[in-house]
Amino acid sequence: MLKSLNIDPGKCTGCLQCEMACSLENEGVFNTAKSRIKVFTFHEEGRFVPYTCTQCDEAWCMHACPVDAIVLNPVTGSKDVKNDLCVGCKVCTIACPFGTVNYNADSGKVVKCDLCGGDPQCASACPTNAITYVDANATGLDKMRQWAGKTDNAASTGA
């Protein structure tokens, strides 16, 4: 079963546990500046929104890379950056419509979410289930369930 990250901003409290888990897994330090998932705060609106790579099937970054340094992981479906091939040209950062591939000046390579090889640490760390790792074919299931509950009129008709 292919799984994907499912993000529900309504549950996010902006605590950045996901960003720290990501940087610890991938960089070996607690460093939100190096996280591949980002939580954006919209202060006036009172919203926190986590955002990261959605692992497009026809990934713009993968197709744009001139040296084939971004490759499909057949197990997880993630598009992974091969550091030994990446030349740091940043074409993928231009190609990605969502901005989720970014250049790391320290390494001279680009970085993006690789689903931690199938055990995404952001989802494990999230205290409110705003980030979950679920069946890719059913990411809408929770929302469907909520709406299903609202559309159930059995109670009123039975009265």
Partner: peptide, 12 residues
């Protein structure tokens, strides 16, 4: 509107 957490806080 909602609850918010400080840095690293899982209570919020």
């Amino acid at each position: 509107t909602r609850n918010g957490g400080c840095f690293a806080c899982t209570i919020a």
